[in-house]
């Protein structure tokens, strides 16, 4: 594939660029220009200064929300890994029919609108929901409040993002040559040792890919924490929306967005140095 593409490029230099042009123009008009506008707004609204950045980087509220955003994203990533890894393993190593069934369930959840999934959690975890009813039936006196807590917003985010993790790890596990495992066994590796020294390193690219995707997507989550959490759990995207919607603070909102973008780019750069971004989509 790489070969033929390069041969094509040698022959007619202009064609690949022409083919790219519509996308290029589209990206320029609908991505680069608006993004530049946001960058400009962050230093010019309401007046030309760095005051917005000063506020975002030093204000107690913004610091708290930024830190909370990154901690939440990290925690959600860990949870997705804990849930996703065993499930991916099950999919990769069970009979085709079972694997298909699990895959179907995971993709079905993946293709469902996340607003729908968010509201489903509201129904499930609510005071009149099945979970509380079950606890009542079990005779538990002090019923916990599940909804509008860190628990409910984290649970829903893990549910929404887990498919990214599962797909990534699954695709890597599927490609592992069984001969490698057999030869490791023939050399005496068993159980934990086999997993730790052979299987885990082989699946590491999948873990890395899945984790970066989940982490980065989670950084920008908006609706789920707003609807299922409390203001204490709010994430930066929610705060940006709130600033713009209610206070018309376009400059401040832009500055927050730029800081979020910058930090995300740093994370992706580190990832690129270590694993290569080109591998991110398999």
């Amino acid at each position: 594939m790489g070969m033929s593409l390069s041969r094509l490029t040698e022959k007619t230099n202009i064609w690949p660029w022409l083919l790219l042009a519509p996308l290029g123009i589209y990206m320029l008009v609908f991505f680069v220009v608006p993004l530049a506008d946001v960058a400009i707004m962050s230093v010019t609204d309401p007046r030309v200064s760095l005051a917005n950045y000063q506020k975002v980087l030093t204000g107690a509220l913004y610091q708290r929300v930024f830190i909370n955003t990154f901690l939440t994203a990290a925690f959600v990533t860990l949870c997705c890994l804990a849930v996703g890894y065993p499930l991916a393993y099950l999919m990769a190593h069970s009979k085709p029919r079972t694997a298909m069934l699990i895959l179907l369930l995971v993709t079905m959840s993946f293709w469902t609108s996340f607003l729908v999934r968010t509201y489903s959690w509201m129904v499930l975890l609510g005071n009149n929901g099945p979970l509380i009813a079950f606890l009542q039936m079990m005779g538990i006196e002090q019923l916990p409040q599940l909804l509008f807590t860190r628990f409910s917003s984290t649970l829903a985010m893990v549910h929404i993002l887990a498919p990214y993790m599962i797909m990534n790890i699954f695709s890597v596990m599927k490609k592992i040559d069984p001969a490698l495992i057999r030869s490791a066994e023939s050399l005496g590796a068993k159980g934990w040792s086999l997993f730790r020294h052979v299987y885990l390193p082989l699946t590491a690219p999948g873990i890395a890919n899945g984790s970066v995707l989940v982490f980065v997507i989670c950084l920008g989550f908006y609706v789920t924490p707003v609807l299922l959490g409390s203001p204490r759990e709010q994430m930066i995207a929610g705060l940006i929306g709130h600033q713009i919607d209610e206070f018309l603070a376009f400059g401040l909102g832009s500055a927050m967005a730029m800081v979020l973008l910058f930090v995300t780019l740093i994370i992706l750069t580190i990832y690129h140095r270590r694993f290569g971004l080109d591998k991110l989509w398999g």
């Binding site: 509220l61 929300v65 204490r232």
Partner: peptide
């Protein structure tokens, strides 16, 4: 006022 309130409600 809203800014002060937002800080209060988030802490």
């Amino acid at each position: 006022l809203a800014e002060r309130f937002e800080e209060w409600v988030a802490s």
